Amino acid sequence: MSSAPRLRPLHRPLVWFTVSMAVFALVCLGGLFLDDRELAGAAIWAKPLKFALSFVAYCLTLAWMLSLLPGARARRAGWWAGTVLTVACAGEMALITTQVIRGRQSHFNVATPFDAALFGAMGGTVVILWLAALVIAVLLLRARILDRATAWAVRLSSLIALAGAALGFAMTRPTSGQLAQKDPSLIGAHSVGVPDGGPGLPLIGWSTTGGDLRIGHFFGMHALQLIPLLPLVLSALAPRFTRLADDRIRLRLILVASGFYAAVFALLTWQALRGRPLLSPDGTTLAAAGALTVATAFGTALALRVRQPKTGSPNSRIPETQPV
């Protein structure tokens, strides 16, 4: 009789950083009400609030995933990777907050030598964060953890999150307008086809007139939370739907869902790179979304199929008594 996996403590530095970001999010909310300054068309405390909330979800999930690693060697490597990632995240938030206090734009700002130095330091923290997340993803890929459905949900979500985080590097490329300037004050942009700071969705600020790479960045990184929830949902539904009690079917559904998530991430990124706003998709985007929906429905139907034993085969003969 197999025993349930032993619960291990969560990664303590990541947990404490998560708590600090939850508290800091409350500070940012206060800033939204008490500080009427705006930057690039948005309330100046909106950016640190978004980063704080994102780090709460991201780091707490990683702390849980690291607790799944078996073996002292893997857990030690995971602890160091998680600790390095925590330091990088803390550095990123400190730099963003410094610029908020100064009333200066944090990302892409090279207007003065000091602004450029801070932006360069932010780039360094992002590289360190990404590399630490890559180490964690490799550890999860190699580890045998829990049941197969949960294991692959954790592995695939960490890979998609890495791809989502990597979109941040694409945002640092200078736009054509910036290249045409002799001494640009900004290098890089969130938006594609339109300047940053234009009309956007409330609070999150995603452009409503052009493409926005933050959409794919956000969607990809938070695969880390959404995909691992699916095995829990499937297990909860298993008593009502007998097919879901089969671990092979749950695994197939996880693979289909992960493929769907990765494809939606690619579609959102492609739409942004073509300069199309999220809420105004063109015919090409709609056609791709329709094809993806059909393919996912077909894959789900195949995943739910139960193979019946062939008539006359030894497996099809049901004995009158079952051995104890």
Rank of each mutant, 00 (worst) to 15 (best):
L134K: 08
L134S: 12
V135T: 12
V135D: 07
I136H: 04
I136Y: 05
A137C: 12
A137N: 01
A137S: 11
A137W: 02
A137R: 00
V138G: 00
V138Q: 06
V138L: 14
L139V: 14
L139N: 10
L139D: 11
L139E: 11
L140W: 05
L140P: 02
L140H: 06
L140M: 13
L141Q: 04
L141G: 00
L141W: 10
R142I: 02
R142Y: 05
R142F: 04
R142V: 03
R142E: 07
R142G: 08
R142N: 07
R142A: 09
A143S: 11
A143R: 06
A143K: 04
A143E: 02
A143P: 00
R144D: 10
I145M: 09
I145W: 04
I145L: 11
I145K: 01
I145D: 01
L146C: 14
L146D: 15
D147Q: 04
D147V: 03
D147E: 13
D147G: 07
R148I: 06
A149D: 14
A149I: 08
A149F: 11
A149V: 08
T150L: 15
T150Y: 15
A151R: 15
A151Y: 13
A151K: 14
W152F: 15
W152K: 10
W152A: 06
A153T: 14
A153S: 15
A153N: 13
A153E: 13
V154W: 02
V154H: 01
V154E: 01
V154K: 02
V154C: 10
V154T: 08
V154Y: 02
R155G: 03
R155M: 08
R155Y: 09
L156Q: 10
L156D: 10
L156R: 11
L156E: 08
L156F: 13
S157L: 13
S158K: 11
S158W: 11
S158P: 09
L159A: 06
L159G: 00
L159F: 09
I160K: 02
I160P: 05
I160W: 04
I160T: 11
A161P: 04
A161S: 13
A161R: 00
L162I: 08
L162S: 05
L162D: 03
A163G: 15
A163T: 08
A163K: 05
A163F: 12
A163C: 12
G164Y: 04
G164V: 02
A165L: 13
A165E: 00
A166P: 06
A166R: 08
A166F: 15
A166M: 13
A166N: 11
A166H: 12
L167K: 05
G168W: 01
G168C: 04
G168A: 06
G168S: 02
G168F: 01
F169D: 05
F169M: 07
F169N: 06
F169P: 04
F169A: 12
A170E: 14
A170M: 13
A170S: 11
A170G: 03
A170I: 08
A170L: 15
M171G: 03
M171F: 10
T172C: 03
T172H: 06
